[in-house]
């Protein structure tokens, strides 16, 4: 695991200039955008960078050699999720710090409690997205995964757009459900969110391990 993490860090460091440019953009954009932008933007960058290491591993037929090194298929799948989560959390933290500094410097003020609760929601969303992307990328490989991701996220978008219309057509009123959720104590909501995110990540890890165990190189 340590070796894999070292490899992934070094792969990302090969793109230092691109990473510096993305960070500079984050600072620049944070001035004009709303409070949650930098956190979500940098979390997404962290997720994309982490997932890109799977493509780098596969590039130039690298997988066969890599699996002759002292790593297990299970360890590889788990490392990708662990490394991805680490990248997202690190970038998310940078986003939070940048937003706090920029808000202080520009003097536009920051409702810290509201900002932080929004930031945590983004963190959970990107961890869940990572949980979807890692098994998909491992299963489909570098090329086909792009198509699969368009289908998955396009499907989610379509479901988001069509869901309310479908509910209306079926005369389903989801307002009471939303209202009940709002009435739940904050601690319960946070606990539920954390549990749901961790459960999805655990499920993703199991699927990714299964995918790797079935793979041949």
């Amino acid at each position: 695991m340590r070796g894999l993490i070292e490899k992934d860090i070094r792969l990302l460091l090969q793109r230092k200039k691109a990473m510096a440019l993305l960070a500079a953009m984050a600072v620049f954009l944070s001035v004009g955008m709303d409070d949650s932008f930098v956190t979500s933007y940098l979390s997404m960058v962290g997720m994309v960078l982490a997932v890109s290491t799977i493509s780098y591993d596969e590039f130039d037929n690298g997988h066969p050699f890599m699996f002759t090194l002292p790593i297990s298929r299970k360890g590889y799948a788990a490392e990708k999720l662990l490394f991805g989560s680490g990248c997202i959390i690190l970038c998310w933290l940078c986003g939070v710090v940048i937003q706090c500094i920029v808000s202080t410097i520009t003097g536009k003020g920051l409702d810290f409690a509201s900002f932080l609760s929004g930031a945590f929601i983004y963190l959970a969303v990107f961890l869940i997205m990572l949980s979807v992307l890692v098994p998909v990328e491992l299963y489909f490989g570098m090329e086909k995964a792009r198509v699969a991701m368009v289908v998955i996220f396009g499907g989610c978008f379509a479901a988001g757009m069509l869901g309310p219309k479908l509910a209306n057509a079926l005369k389903l009123d989801i307002t009471p459900v939303v209202e009940n959720l709002k009435r739940l104590p904050k601690g319960g909501l946070i606990g539920g969110g954390v549990t749901l995110t961790l459960a999805i990540m655990a499920l993703s890890c199991l699927i990714a391990i299964r995918v790797m165990e079935k793979k041949e190189f």
Partner: peptide, 21 residues
């Protein structure tokens, strides 16, 4: 026809192998 990433330097290979073996 398979090896370390073409982006790696030998010093990267050393660092990775040190952690692996």
């Amino acid at each position: 026809d398979s090896g370390f990433s073409r982006m790696f330097y030998v010093k990267d290979v050393i660092a990775v192998l040190k952690k692996m073996y």
